[in-house]
Design a protein around this nucleic acid. Structure first.
Length: 292
DNA sequence: AGGATAGCCTGCGGGC
DNA sequence: TGCCCGCAGGCTATCC
């Protein structure tokens, strides 16, 4: 469920907590959630230094729903949270009872300020749709894994979206969920942005008029930015690195509101399955053929 | 080649 | 109360 806004909130809270920190140790508790490659791209057994042990954390970057922890020595750890993944930071020897102990797959000890404050970062993911990928450099990540992603949805420009949708024969909802088209949008924000833009989720992606694509691009950016401001959407599992919940779920116009009145016209919101995903929309405000 | 589909995995809520 | 089933969904592999 973490989509772009939630991942961005994790990025910010994680960066604030660990940038400049020295990774004193790293432990992988489940080997099958992590993939490591050498400089030639060959699969190798993950060692502690792949997980940045012995490195200093420089910064945390994001593309779409994926994070990259970047070390000062150039090494990179890519983290995907999948459906239920969490990166949680807690201070050592503080009451840590609020941090679940089950489904923890990796753990890091971080020292900041010359050893005065030690923090613990954990990666937990009950459903294990997420994972870790290690790289020798940011360039290697960008040339391999991130090459498969489209432009980041938070800053998507109208021309980029138009280019990505041109000639596509699938529905606009399917296209928005395709990370190779646009990186960062999942089921929640696809429905929210399409409602906001007044576009039917079942519309053929390649047949949307240019000015509607422009409208959609701006509504995608706006919806995601608003969600980030609200700390993301917490339906059940999502927390940022400091353990905080988001509040954007209270502002969903359509997601999870099937059968309830449309906030714009008052008609009943409809539920359908589009692109194998539960989709909620307003048939009146999101007409199949645009009113004009 | 692009689009549709199955499967991965766990937790929870509804129904009986 | 307890069990079972369906559903949630990002992404990859596989098929069409």
């Amino acid at each position: 469920m973490p989509e772009l806004p939630e991942v961005e909130c994790v990025r910010r809270s994680l960066q604030a907590a660990i940038s400049g920190g020295f990774v004193a140790g790293a432990t992988l508790l489940r080997r099958d959630i992590c993939e490591s490659r050498d400089a030639q791209g060959r699969l190798v057994r993950t060692r502690a230094e792949h997980l940045l042990s012995g490195s200093t954390i420089d910064r945390v970057e994001r593309l779409g729903k994926q994070l990259a922890l970047i070390a000062a020595n150039g090494r990179v750890l890519c983290v995907h949270l999948g459906m239920t993944g969490q990166l949680l930071v807690r201070r050592e020897r503080s009451g840590e009872s609020d941090v679940p102990r089950d489904h923890v797959h990796a753990r890091w000890a971080i020292r900041r300020n010359g050893g005065s404050g030690e923090a613990c970062v954990i990666f937990r993911d009950p459903r294990r749709f997420g994972g870790l990928w290690t790289f020798e450099s940011l360039d290697q990540l960008k040339r391999s894994r991130w090459r498969l992603l489209g432009p980041d949805a938070l800053t998507i420009r109208a021309e980029e979206l138009h280019e990505a949708l041109r000639d596509r024969t699938c529905s606009i909802k399917a296209a928005l969920l395709d990370q190779g088209t646009l990186a960062g949008v999942g089921n929640i924000y696809a429905d929210e942005a399409l409602f906001s833009a007044g576009i039917s989720p079942g519309m053929c992606a390649g047949r949307i008029h240019a000015e509607q694509v422009t409208t959609l691009a701006s509504h995608i950016r706006e919806t995601l930015a608003l969600a980030i401001e609200s700390g993301g959407s917490t339906l059940r599992d999502y927390r940022d690195a400091s353990g905080s919940r988001g509040t954007f779920q209270h502002r969903h116009a359509v997601y999870g509101r099937a059968g309830e009145p449309c906030l714009r016209c008052g008609g009943a919101l409809r539920r359908a399955t589009i692109a194998q995903r539960t989709t909620v929309y307003c048939p009146a405000c999101q007409p199949r053929s645009p009113n004009r």
